[in-house]
């Protein structure tokens, strides 16, 4: 089964990103594929590589990066939501003349069309939000 996952909340504030991660992990363990995880609204904050949670806490952005590396998952931050919230990849840094980028490994920034495409292509679309 091919899954699309939509994450609408940022890390640490709300359980949504944790639930989405645990769902994605379980789906993969059951032999299914994740077509794409799309991060929208404050969900784009899951893609920062600058988070430094305490050692005894889970590292939410890194956890997504690791899962994506191991299982070839497409992690997409919505560009409009990302720009508003200061999530920047190297291309966006150049285009908007910023002095840094802050995107974590395996995440990429793209348009909302990627979410619609996930709705069309995936056999199941599940949303985790507030």
């Amino acid at each position: 089964m091919l899954f699309g996952i939509l994450v609408n909340e940022g890390p640490y504030q709300h359980q949504a990103s944790d639930s989405a991660y645990l769902f994605a992990k379980a789906a993969i363990e059951e032999g299914h594929k994740i077509f794409r995880v799309f991060f929208y609204h404050d969900g784009v904050n899951n893609g920062t590589r600058l988070a430094t949670p305490p050692q005894d806490d889970r590292h939410i952005p890194n956890r997504w990066s690791e899962l994506a590396k191991e299982h070839e998952i497409d992690l997409v931050l919505c560009v409009a939501a990302a720009q508003r919230r200061g999530m920047v990849d190297p291309d966006e840094m150049k285009r908007n003349k910023k002095d840094a980028d802050n995107i974590a490994e395996k995440f990429r920034i793209s348009g909302l069309g990627q979410l619609i495409e996930a709705g069309v292509q995936a056999e199941r679309l599940i949303t985790f939000g507030d």
Partner: peptide, 19 residues
């Protein structure tokens, strides 16, 4: 909250996909 506004942005983008 921003949800209603950002939902409408998805509708507008999605309209181009002829669903």
């Amino acid at each position: 909250t921003v949800y209603a506004h950002e939902a409408l942005e998805v509708v507008l983008i999605g309209a181009a996909f002829e669903q």
